[in-house]
């Protein structure tokens, strides 16, 4: 029930936006994330964007995970 799906903001009309989720488009409200801009990724929960996704943080988490995986592979 607390599902949140990453979606890309394609177009903004007032407080509503057209967002793309895995290739399909649908409408979502930006009332809870009013500073979202076209091109941003947001988390969608029951038709509302609830947060912007921080791409830099996502990359850093992945980098950390890769380092953890590599240190494992080299037997450290």
């Amino acid at each position: 029930m607390c599902l949140g799906i990453p979606a890309k903001v394609i177009e903004i009309n007032g407080y509503m936006a057209e967002v793309e989720i895995g290739g399909t488009r649908r409408e979502a409200s930006l009332q809870l994330v009013p500073d979202a801009k076209v091109g941003d990724f947001v988390l969608i929960h029951t038709g509302y964007a609830i947060q912007k996704i921080d791409e830099k943080e996502a990359e850093e988490t992945l980098e950390l995970l890769k380092q953890l995986g590599e240190s494992n592979g080299s037997g450290e």
Partner: peptide
């Protein structure tokens, strides 16, 4: 899907499972 598939990378998953076992 961006921000989903990267976090399902099977090789990394295997490496992390190994790490959890170690820790």
């Amino acid at each position: 899907m961006k921000f989903v598939n990267e976090f399902r990378n099977p090789k990394l998953v295997q490496a992390l499972i190994k790490k959890v076992r170690e820790y």
